[in-house]
Amino acid sequence: MPSRRRTLLKVIILGDSGVGKTSLMNQYVNKKFSNQYKATIGADFLTKEVEFEDRLFTLQIWDTAGQERFQSLGVAFYRGADCCVLVYDVNVQKSFDNLNNWREEFLIQASPSDPENFPFIVLGNKVDVDGGNSRVVSEKKARAWCAAKGDIPYFETSAKEGINVEEAFQVIAKNALKNGEEEEIYLPDTIDVGSTSQQRASGCDC
């Protein structure tokens, strides 16, 4: 057995197709970037072990497809997520506008116990493109939206240049961890002594 307890965190990455979800994950996990666009089909799964505040944990990253036709996979995919990463492309207005939909959809499908405090994080990706000249969503606007949704942490990233990727995932891990620490007590049932005579065996078919 491992000498210290490890925690597994399920992290879901959501956002419109082409905003760079897979690239962010690849940059984070494999330190690699490819300019070629390959649409994710359904979902990709990657794991990364992280040490943080002297604790070991594993990020189980669910990189989902942005295309609408995959939305039917929803419930089962989102179930039990510890953190949700919302990604948009700072050069595409629509991808920012859709953040709201992604967030709502996630909350409906995953139905976390405490939706108000569920740990989201927003990443504005592709800040490197065209030296920032093609940018259409300002940082201010993005931060305002995040603030309005319960102070969601916000990062401006470039999967290509590796800007802020590591930092963003640090916060993802930290927030997911914080959120998960509340319920850790397992209280097993014990047979009520007095009622044992009612414990009829169910397995006997004789």
């Binding site: 490890r6 597994l8 399920k10 359904g42 979902a43 799964f45 990657l46 794991t47 072990e49 594993t58 189980q60 669910w62 996979l73 089962a76 995919f77 179930r79 039990g80 997520a81």
Partner: peptide, 25 residues
């Protein structure tokens, strides 16, 4: 049911988290 590994006969459960997610999917 959320795809988190609980037990694997071989290999480290955490390293198999991606595989576990695939099974759940």
């Amino acid at each position: 049911h959320s795809g988190k590994p609980i037990y694997s006969r071989y290999g480290d459960e955490h390293k198999l988290a991606g595989f576990s997610a695939t099974l759940q999917a």
